[in-house]
Computed example of a mutant assay.
Amino acid sequence: MDSVDLPHTSSFKGGSEIFLRNVFENIVKTYLRKNPTAKTIWELVQSLDNEKISYDHFTFRTFKVDGYGIDSLSSFFMDYGYKTGGGLDFPNKKIRVIWLSPPDVHVPNDGHGLGNGPLPRVVMAEVLVDELSLESQGVIRKYLKPEGGKQAVLSSTLGSLIWEKPTWTDFKILAKESEIAAWTLIHGYTMNHLAFAVHRFKHRFSDIKCIKQYFEGKGFELNTDGGILKVSQDGLLLQVSTISEKLPVKFADGVTEIIPASYIEFTQRQILPQFKDLPHDEIKEFHRREAFKVNSANNIMESTRFTTKF
């Protein structure tokens, strides 16, 4: 079983926490604006049984090249008290993932959302560019100019590419070898997905199985890789994700094609066995299953699988 660490002391001073929460709010607004189906799901979660929105993690994709990798995002969040929680390697996909745990902040008993609720974990993937073919490396380096990664967080909040929009020809070259790299080239630092914290919900959505049944009944397409309900070996981490909607994108050479956008995930973290007898109102996030698992994460990444074969 994974070790359990007590939450670290908040490093916030003055208005820093307010600023960080505003950054997150704008990242979410941009994500929902660019992904209509995700917005519909988000609004359903918020409206049903007066649910209060709480997030488990936000996920981003980057390129490990010229300062555009994980460090381009992590440095900002670590300035505001985030700390490295762990990492995962996906050699078959040629990507590496790091996740950051949020600082411990005061959360009112009714605290939810980004306004006054717990802060989300931040998950960052980077495509290991040097492990791709020389042709794919050439495509990526053609667009990513040195020093541009410094604007990563600004790019996430605006939903705008730092680099020039790629051509369909270049996109196809990259997609043939790595769909994740191609997705990142066209979407940049736009949030790949957000995950709701099911264990913080109330009423009908407090059980991920109910969520699965509800959205299946509503006709939403759910990710079936590894089963719709993905369960860690210890049974304490449960995840469900939707399939990314496909949206038209106009490429730099004038070609318009339908490609995957972003998706939504639901994550339920069960209480660790050693804390199962604690009163419910005393349960904190660190009493629950922490971290992520390679197999489940690998399957969830397939939510952005392309339907077109290049």
Rank of each mutant, 00 (worst) to 15 (best):
V139Q: 07
L144M: 04
A175G: 07
I186Q: 02
A152H: 11
Q151N: 11
A152N: 08
W168F: 15
F196T: 06
V153W: 14
T167N: 04
T157H: 02
A195Y: 08
S155L: 04
E179W: 15
S178H: 12
L185H: 12
K172R: 15
K165P: 01
K142N: 10
K150G: 12
I140E: 02
L174K: 08
T169P: 01
F196P: 07
E147Y: 07
A197Q: 09
E164N: 15
E177H: 07
S156R: 08
L194M: 15
Y143G: 06
K165L: 09
Q151M: 09
W183S: 02
D170C: 01
H193T: 14
S156K: 07
L144Y: 04
K172F: 00
L161W: 06
V153M: 11
W183N: 05
H199G: 00
K165A: 12
K150N: 13
K145Y: 08
Y189V: 13
K142H: 11
K172W: 00
Y143H: 10
K150P: 00
K142V: 00
T157C: 08
W183L: 08
G188R: 06
K176M: 08
L144R: 09
L174E: 07
S155D: 05
V153R: 01
K150I: 13
S160P: 00
P166W: 05
F171G: 00
F196W: 12
E147C: 02
K145Q: 15
T167G: 11
K176D: 12
A197C: 04
S160D: 07
V153F: 13
A195C: 12
F171T: 02
L194H: 14
S155P: 10
E147M: 10
K165F: 07
T169I: 06
